[in-house]
Amino acid sequence: MLRITGLNKSFDGFQAVADASLDIEKGEVVAVIGPNGAGKTTLFNLITGQLTPDSGEIWFREENITGLPAHVISRKGIGRSFQIVNVFDRLTVFENVQIAVLARRGNTLNLFRPARSMAVKETGDVLANVGLSEKRTMTSGMLSHGDRKVLEIAIALGSRPELLILDEPTAGMSPDETAATLDLMTRLSGDLGLTILFCEHDMGLVFSIANRITVMNHGATIIQGLPEDVRRNRQVQKAYLGGDVPC
């Protein structure tokens, strides 16, 4: 479904992503792990068009999407959440998700109909799915950090992507919230059949949900394999500076 080959990106001489490759089949849950600064977020930004790669190719569903602008890539079916919470702070929770739904339906240039009555059911469904129904009228800037992270995912779901990219979905969450997010990701993969690509520091979460794991270090994808292979791999342990990978 997504195939990346030989991707490079550097900023002012700093090689953030170096010859990265990645392969994702439909329906898979793929995790990218690696130390801070390994280039995970840059890789995601390259896939979704926030950044343009220096070289290399990105193919999505048999189509070369390398270097397309972000909004075009999004319309092709790749949705994403951001590591740093990136919601619409002054809008309500409902409106946050509704914008995503309206955008997918191509309604955002409609000047004449009241938005109040549009996409209500679908937006409500997304909110119910992530468990934010009760907070739908709250201004999103007032939400707790955990709820904002969930709203992040909800907005991405609003555009009904086929491939969902999550950048550290549980960063800064409490253990309870992390468990709920893990549950949510399981349901998205199982019930909706979404393909998920995510990066995460919580190894417990990674190993309990990912079908396959890619390890990045210094911008390169050093290994891609099944969770048990990755766990045993010595290079991975080296990448984490000799730290133990939790089992």
Binding site: Q50, I99, A103, N110, L111, P114, S159
Partner: peptide, 30 residues
């Protein structure tokens, strides 16, 4: 009325977060 329309809502979304809007397939500049 325009601000209450889908356009108005999206416009406010662009105000709060243009990058996010692009990631949702919204042509911000248009």
């Amino acid at each position: 009325r325009i601000l209450c329309s889908p356009f108005g809502r999206t416009f406010q979304g662009i105000r709060d977060n243009p990058e996010r809007c692009r990631a949702l397939g919204i042509h911000v500049q248009r």
